[in-house]
Amino acid sequence: MNRRSFLKFTALAGFFGIGASGTAMALARSSNRYHSGPVSDHFDGVRFFNPDGAEPKGFSDLLKWKFGGKQPRWPAAVRSPFAPTSPDPRIDGDRLRITMVGHATLLIQTAGLNILTDPVWSDRASPFSFAGPKRVTAPGIAFEELPKIDLVLLSHNHYDHLDLVTLARLKQAHDPLVITPLGNDAIIKAHTPDMRIKTGDWGDVIGEAAAKVHFEPCHHWSARGVNDRSMALWAAFVLETSGGKILHIGDTGFDNGRPYQNARDRHGHFRAAILPVGAYEPRWFMKDQHQNPDEAIDGFLLSGADYALGHHWGTFQLTDEGRDAPAEVLDAKLAEKGVARERFRPLSPGEAWEAPLTA
């Protein structure tokens, strides 16, 4: 293995939170450095888990994947068909506009609020600045062009979702409130001690300004290194505003549709759903934690949302599908299932979608 391959593999081991020694894992089982709380149906006192769900793969499976298959080469740089945008300062009333920055980072504007999801403006989604998945598309909004950010919805702590450097920049420039599941506050405050943060468990709700943010279960996991697997919680969000209800999922396995049916049962009608459609190959390794476009459509239909927007594709090469495959597969599966293309759009960086007005 050459040096470049070794660094990439090391970054992946950290990214997927596997590869720790037996001693380190034994120590990790004895305590949780991010969260302390009572045992629940998804927390055993040390680690969070998916009730009746599947555990993420282990180190031997990572080796099998990385050295037993062939990953397609992505282009080093891709220009989005949409020019970088300069968003309006505010979108008021019941209007709803969602702009893609890249990967899982989107700007949601409604009810006079500016909300970012899983903000990453760094060049790499990695524990290292010199190795790991590198950005191939420029952010669809330059950081300096952001309107005043009020809230950040941070779904979980994987490096393509929780970027400490970007959060520190946001603190300095905007001082937003970060809303995130249990345990992630410890990670953020170790880097940016004065960050404003509120945490919640599945089923909790936080009311802020003109919005309510509900924490919903999804089927995923968390890790920042090799001995902290699932020590911080992951979640989907339901955003409730005068612009309607929005279901946002940063990352999930399809899990027999449970994340979608549960959300619909609890919250009823959604004006829009923001759903991951990428990072799904090979299926034997990714299926339990990352849904594919076919499953994303099924989830959209189960949720009952009017429209869906696809994210988590085309920015960082994390897995084995080609760069454009998620959008192409999504398009084909929409046609196969008889769902109008305008109802589920995979957004590209710089692309802004405005929800049609409803009666």
Rank of each mutant, 00 (worst) to 15 (best):
T10F: 15
W121I: 00
Q172A: 15
G102D: 01
D194A: 05
P276Y: 09
P356Q: 10
D298G: 05
K64D: 01
Y307T: 03
I274E: 00
S36L: 09
M25K: 15
G225Y: 02
L63T: 00
I274W: 01
K245T: 13
K70M: 07
K171R: 14
P81H: 05
S348F: 10
A125M: 05
V329Q: 06
A76T: 07
D41E: 14
T192E: 10
D201M: 12
V152T: 05
G102R: 01
M100L: 13
F49E: 02
F6W: 14
L12K: 15
F130H: 15
R95D: 12
K189F: 04
T110K: 14
A131P: 14
W221A: 03
V39G: 11
H191C: 04
P75W: 03
G243H: 05
D204E: 12
F16H: 01
L309S: 02
L116Y: 00
G69R: 12
F128L: 13
F16S: 03
R47V: 03
E145T: 13
W202F: 03
Q289L: 06
A273N: 04
H103S: 03
P119V: 06
L275Q: 02
A28G: 08
N2P: 10
H248K: 11
D306E: 13
A142V: 08
T99W: 07
D185A: 15
R196F: 10
L154M: 11
N32Q: 11
Q261M: 05
A83K: 15
G37L: 15
A232N: 07
L106G: 04
T199F: 06
G250M: 03
S122Q: 12
E354D: 00
Y280R: 08
F59G: 06
V238R: 02
A83G: 12
V277L: 09
L177Q: 12
S40V: 07
A168V: 03
D201V: 07
V101G: 04
I188E: 04
R341I: 11
G304V: 05
K64L: 09
A359Y: 10
D288C: 01
F270E: 00
I246Q: 07
H214E: 03
G200P: 03
F67M: 10
Y280H: 11
G243D: 02
P259Y: 01
G203W: 15
F48P: 01
T23K: 14
P176N: 02
T180G: 04
I188C: 12
F48D: 03
D228P: 14
F143K: 14
A186N: 08
V78D: 07
T85G: 06
A263V: 00
D228S: 14
V39N: 12
G200A: 10
L106C: 08
F49T: 05
G225N: 10
K66F: 02
S40M: 11
S155D: 00
F130D: 11
G200C: 07
R47Q: 09
R33N: 04
A77V: 15
W284E: 06
P38F: 01
E336I: 13
H42V: 08
Q317C: 07
L62H: 07
C218K: 04
E351R: 06
S348M: 11
R29L: 10
F9H: 06
Y307A: 05
P276R: 14
G22I: 13
K70Y: 02
A77N: 14
V152W: 05
R135G: 03
K134I: 12
L301G: 05
K57E: 11
P259M: 01
M286C: 08
T85L: 10
W121L: 09
H35V: 01
H290A: 02
A125T: 02
A20C: 15
L357I: 07
